[in-house]
Write a protein that binds this DNA or RNA. Structure first.
Length: 587
RNA sequence: GGACCUGUGGUGCAGUUUGGAGUGCACGCCGGCCUGUCAAGCCGGAGGUCGCGGGUUCAAAUCCCGUCAGGUCCGCCA
């Protein structure tokens, strides 16, 4: 991480706690910060560890100085080398200390309800209630600064590529479809509402029609969907859109930007970013966001069990994963895996412990083993390549389900903590245009209705829409979806065909997206774009498994903010002004 | 909307399985001692609606029901 804190001298301080060193010996300094700890040694000697965002420095003071934990003080004194034998090599400033100190209390403090020490764990709800104290912890300071470093390197990358930063409205127009939107009542037009944008998607397309050529923004997006470890109501994206570009141009630009960010944080650029098709990702990893840090790829056993007599394997697709040395898993653990698979929709999960057979071969141990023919047993062993001590897990189901269930088990069994290992970026391309059917039998847009179909599949829109691929692409890092983008439709005929496939009538489209379609009538350049989820990117670079650790003031899973108490009831007068009556469900 | 986990002095935990007096540990806090500590040390002290409500019982932190809060996940996230 680059920490260029040149000269931070102000009218109140001459240096920073963590920056005072042996070069400053015999210098007179004035430092400001918080009292991290105080160690008393009788009437006329005490040590104060003074903390600011750069670190700790030890101040030697008279025992009469009455300062306590988290007092804000300024200390003026002389930097001295520490006496022989008292150097603390656990401290960056451990070779020196501040002597002859004059201490001024700038603000007294009550004992903090949560420890500011990184080594002391605290419950997250307490941390969030006192987030301002939690943020003082070196760990949170580090995360906030990594986030800032990433932001600035992304901005620099975008500027270098000729992108223009434009701010788009937060008060936007409802476009029913997609994520649930946060509504904002209009005071001047009672009964009407703005919504907070799920993303600046439509705005940035209008910017392309507006001839901006290349737009970017570090944009806040808001979606009223249940929060998770990797999701908050509001989140931040590096949002971008460019004209006269295709998929490869966007992939190149975004790859370059995230490589810059990676280099800014870790000091080295990631290896060239792989690409795989959505179909490959599903078949090999059982997910559209593969974690490439480990193997355990899905193995297709459909051919082995074609026409099988084993009822459990009579399904369109039979797939497996091998858990190396998983044979030692007890029945309890295995049963839990079966439950997990069934919870994900599988009819069951078959398992085979691989053992040493007679005559040097391999044997299968499983409730199903006796039902397998010799050919099936050999086929299973050959296809999986499993060896003695391994555990083979098999799911037989419809194709998509078999893949996703095993993909889930693969991550569950083989996945590592977010912070572990290298950063394995991968582009997943050629997503399907549509995913499944809605209640009325219309295909559901996989990305959004403005996504350009794959050039080879335009004709499929009218005949077999579910087989049509799109020109959309996701960036995946270590199993986390970092962002997605697509080439957009700029031609009216293709847009009509997509709306038709989606079951959106001309009137419907006009009512919902009329402003965009209108804009497209006046000369829309071919354009494409992307959005990088910054919270997730920062979390991974910080080694965090939860994005709340990289957000200054996050909300809980039920959407409240323990610090402010939000959300709260509005005063009746405010409601009246907005023309709102609330209906609270009876308890 | 659903499943599971957690809730015990300011903080982190043990105690809950097998009901028997708010019992214990560590940190912090307050007071005292201490001139080279560095998560200082030693001595003493204060601090509790065992999340909340109900039930079972002679007796509930402990068992049962409900509820609230936090977390993980499913649904949801064009």
């Amino acid at each position: 991480m680059s920490t260029e804190d040149a000269d931070r001298a102000t009218s109140m301080r001459t240096s920073l706690c963590g920056r005072v060193g042996t070069d400053d010996v015999e210098e007179r300094v004035r430092l400001c910060g918080w009292v991290a700890r105080r160690r008393e040694h009788g009437e006329h000697l005490a040590f104060i560890d003074l903390r600011d965002h750069t670190g700790l420095v030890q101040c030697v003071v008279d025992g009469a100085v009455d300062v306590r934990s988290e007092y804000v003080i300024s200390v003026e004194g002389v930097v001295k080398r520490r006496p022989e034998g008292t150097v603390n090599d656990k401290l960056a400033t451990g070779e020196i200390e501040i002597h002859d100190c004059t201490v001024e209390v700038l603000a007294a403090a009550e004992p903090p309800p949560v420890s500011v020490d990184d080594r002391v764990e605290a419950d997250e709800s307490v941390r969030l209630r006192y987030r301002y104290l939690d943020l003082r912890r070196p760990h949170m300071q580090r995360n906030m600064r990594i986030r800032s470093t990433i932001n600035s390197s992304l901005r620099r990358a975008m500027e270098r590529h000729g992108f223009c930063e434009v701010e788009t409205p937060l008060l936007w127009s409802p476009t029913p479809e997609g994520a649930r939107e946060f509504a904002v009542p209009s005071r001047l037009q009672r009964g009407s509402f703005y919504v907070l944008p799920q993303s600046p998607q439509l705005a940035k397309q209008l910017l392309m029609v507006g001839g901006l050529d290349r737009y970017y923004q570090i944009a806040r997006c808001l979606r009223d969907e249940d929060p998770r470890a990797d999701r908050q109501f509001e989140f931040t994206q590096l949002d971008l859109e460019a004209s006269f570009v295709g998929q490869d141009d966007i992939i190149e630009i975004v790859s370059d930007a995230v490589a810059d960010a990676s280099e800014a944080v870790t000091g080295k650029r990631p290896d060239s970013v792989e690409r795989m098709t959505w179909t490959d990702a599903l078949n090999r990893f059982g997910t559209d966001k593969p974690d490439l840090r480990f193997g355990m790829e899905l193995i297709d056993l459909s051919a082995v069990f074609e026409g099988t007599g084993v009822r459990a394997f009579s399904a369109p697709v039979v797939k497996a994963i091998v858990l190396a040395e998983g044979g030692t898993l007890g029945r309890g653990r295995i049963d839990a895996l079966v439950d997990r698979a069934m919870g994900l929709g599988a009819a069951g999960l078959a398992w085979f412990r691989i053992g040493e057979g007679e005559g040097g071969g391999l044997s299968l141990e499983s409730p199903l083993a006796a039902h397998l023919s010799d050919t099936e047993r050999d086929g299973l062993l050959a296809a999986t390549g499993a060896t003695a001590g391994d555990l083979v897990l098999v799911v037989a189901a419809e194709h998509r389900l078999a893949c996703t269930v095993l993909g889930n088990l693969r991550v569950h069994l083989g996945g590592q903590a977010v912070g572990d290992g290298p950063h394995r970026f991968v582009w997943v391309v050629e997503f399907p245009m549509f995913e499944g059917l809605d209640d009325e039998g219309h295909p559901i847009a996989a990305h959004h209705p403005f996504t350009m179909p794959h050039p080879d599949d335009v004709a499929l829109l009218g005949t077999d829409p579910l087989s049509a691929r799109s020109q959309s692409y996701d960036l995946v890092l270590n199993g986390w979806e970092l962002g997605s983008g697509s080439v957009r439709i700029h031609r009216a005929d293709i847009q009509s065909a997509v709306f038709r496939a989606l079951g959106i009538s001309v009137e419907d489209a006009e009512a919902r997206f009329g402003f965009l379609l209108g804009a497209f009538r006046y000369g829309a350049p071919p354009h494409a774009g992307f959005a990088v989820g910054l919270d997730r990117l920062v979390a991974i670079f910080c080694g965090e498994e939860n994005i709340r650790e990289v957000i200054a003031f996050p909300k809980t899973q039920s959407g409240s903010d323990p610090l402010t108490g939000a959300p709260k009831a509005l005063a009746d007068s405010a409601l009246k002004e907005l023309g709102i009556r609330t209906v609270v469900p009876e308890k």
